[in-house]
Design a protein around this nucleic acid. Structure first.
Lengths: 242, 242
DNA sequence: GTTATTGATTTGTGATCACACTTGCTTTGA
DNA sequence: TCAAAGCAAGTGTGATCACAAATCAATAAC
């Protein structure tokens, strides 16, 4: 068999098969911890132990310690002087700090995206709006995890269009850092009454459709400010009580 | 001996002793690799091996692999599908991307710092200006490493005044990512002739002294744009030759 | 002479072990 | 009764080993 024929054959096979992608245990542990952090499954100030997580994830300590180290450098976790690690506690300064950074960077990302998104991409995020309404209509009881996931997908679908390989990892890091805080706020939200996230998302999509970068930035800032502002008030009122 | 006396005694001792601070091998390896990366000791596209670095740093592979993992999550290094790691190659898109991100975030940091710095802090960075001139006057031959270190100290001395615990790690990550690129540009600079970094730094300090946030931001952007613009031109001309 | 195959070396990954430090509880002494 | 010393369990860190995958060189086949 000639070489050309073999290569052609291989190409045909390659076109039909999807790459399996050798994923290491460390990567899975890292992704899992990320998911838990962004989703707010860990509480602020909660301490994590390597062996404890290794047991929970049914692996050895090795992949866990590597994943923890990575999360610490991203400031998603905090290394105490005792050499134990915890999820960073919530403080007023930290909330303001995170909101400012997120407004700055995610605002820039969406402003860039607004000038770059094609009609197909806009249609894609518009479709997610419908998904949101659908979820709301079907189930009366609020599925917070589902909402959080959908919210995340919506935002990153947009950010991916900004065309910056530098900004996106920074945004991921910011979500990682604000995840535990946000979740606290969301829980408080759902007690305090209804908030229409879909409304904010609609105004974002409207701005994107008009390719209005400034309007998109403002709509986004309004969207992400809500939980932070809520959490801020809550924290201040509890602080006054002490 | 009563408890109070003992405690008083301990306090006296504590006042005279400086904490030794248990530093792990992993931390030292990480700092060392950071220093090398920011200083541009590694070339873009250079591949690094765990065992190679472990031998060079005279430790086992364990601290090195952990440090490498951390640097990869910061995008300071790149994990190839072969599971080998290299310092990211320079591309035109990456240069523009990094410059935009740095202008945005470092610009915000210096704008915040401009409104917050007290006279003592301003005097401190002003003193670094003098240090720069001094270095220039004394030695005719250019000490690139010394200049780079001084430049880094100057910038971060200012950024530290912005009062954001979120922005500063992001800036560090950006310096880590642009370090290898910058160094290439600096080397080209020193061949191409003199550039007066001190001039740009003086205009930054002048803006800070006036508490003019906008002027400080613009002066900073002018300062950090230079090597990027230079590198950009150089890359475009070499690309045309091919 | 060029291409394919085989084998050796190198490299990353994960598991396990040894050691040092921390933490919390128990025991001891005043 | 209470505080301090001592002990034991738990935890992070680093070293070493085993294994699988990748890389490279040399040999064999056409």
């Amino acid at each position: 068999m000639q070489k050309a024929v073999i290569e052609k054959n291989n190409e045909t096979i390659a076109a039909q098969l999807t790459p399996v992608g050798r994923e290491t245990v460390q990567d899975r542990v890292y992704s899992e911890l990320r998911r838990a952090l962004i989703g707010g499954l860990f509480e602020p100030s909660q301490v994590l132990t390597i062996r404890g997580l290794a047991d929970a994830l049914v692996t050895s300590t090795m992949p866990v310690r590597e994943a923890l180290g990575r999360l610490i450098t991203e400031k998603a976790l905090e290394a105490l002087p005792n050499r134990s690690v915890r999820v960073p506690p919530i403080t007023l300064e930290r909330i303001d700090d995170l909101l400012r950074a997120r407004s700055l960077i995610e605002g820039e990302a969406i402003a860039l995206a607004a000038t770059r998104m094609n009609s197909r991409q806009i249609a894609s995020v518009e479709a997610m709006l419908g998904e949101w309404d659908e979820m709301r209509a079907l189930k009366h009881k609020k599925d917070i995890d589902r909402e959080a996931t959908l919210n995340q997908s919506f935002h990153f679908e947009i950010y991916r269009c900004c065309g910056s390989a530098v900004l996106i990892p920074m945004i991921e890091s910011l979500w990682l850092q604000s995840g535990p805080c946000i979740r606290v706020a969301i829980y408080a939200f759902s007690d305090a009454g209804e908030v229409d996230t879909a409304h904010y998302h609609r105004s974002i999509v409207a701005a994107l459709a008009k390719q209005d970068a400034q309007a998109a930035r403002e709509a986004l800032v309004a969207d992400i400010s809500r939980p932070f502002a809520f959490l801020r008030d809550k924290l201040q009122s509890t602080a006054r009580k002490d």
